[in-house]
Amino acid sequence: MIEARATVIAALRDSNSELDVLARVIRACVGLLPVDGASISVLSGPQERETLYASDVIAMKIENVQFDLGEGPCFEAFATRRPVLVPDLSQASVLAWPVFAAAIAALPIGAIFAFPLQAGAIGIGAIDLYRSRPGWLSADELAVALEVVDVVTAVLLGVLLGEFDGADGLRGVLSPGREQVHQATGMVLAALGISAEEALSRLRGYAFAMGRPLDEVAKDIVNRELSPLELRA
C-alpha cells in the first residue's frame, strides 16, 4: 500500500508535462493493480468529452464505443458522477447496457471499474479500469485504485487551473480533513460570481502568492478573518 503510493508519487515527480504525468500514473496503476488497461476521459464541453489517455487499444475502444452509443458503465460514471463497478461484465452488461454489451462482445473484457473524477460539485471526468477476466479488487487494491483517482483528480485540477506544482501541493486540496477548503471555495465563488473550479484556483493562487498553506487561507476565509473579496483577480 505504501509502496504503491511511492510508485504513484514517483510517476508524478519524474514527469515533464501534465499529459506525461497522466500517462505515467495510469501505467503505474495498471502495473500495480490486477487490471489490464485503463483510460482517462475529461469533460471538454457541456456534453463533450475527450479521452486524454488510454493505455491500449482495448481501453480506447471501451471509451469510444460507450460515448458513441451513449451507454455503458464508464458513460454512466461520467454522467451520474458516481462509481460504476462491474466485476463481472457478462452478468451485468446485457441487462443494464444491451447495446454496449453487443458492441464489445468480441473483446476480451471481463470487468470494468469506472470512477468519476470530481471534487464535490466540480466535475472533471472519469477514470476507467478494465480487466480481461472477471473479478473484484481486494481491499488493498481498491485503496490503490482510489488513491490513483485522487492523484489524477488533483493533477487534472492542477492542469485545468494551470497551477500544477508537484504532488505535495496537490494533495492538500483533496485529502481528507479539508472541509474548510470546500467551504471557502463556496464562499469565494459566491463573492466573486465565478465557477467552483475558478474559486478553487483563486484560493490556491492566493495561498501560493502569500506563501501560506491552502487550508490556513481557507480557515481564515471561513472564520471571516480574510474576505473572499481579497481574492479578486
Partner: peptide
Amino acid sequence: GEVVTEQLQMALNSRVVIEQAKGVLAF
C-alpha cells in the same frame, strides 16, 4: 461487495458538495 464502494464514495463526495454549498450560502 462493490456496491459498498459505490455508496461510500458517493456519500463522501456528497459531503464535499454540501460543504461547498454551505460556503456559498454563508457568504
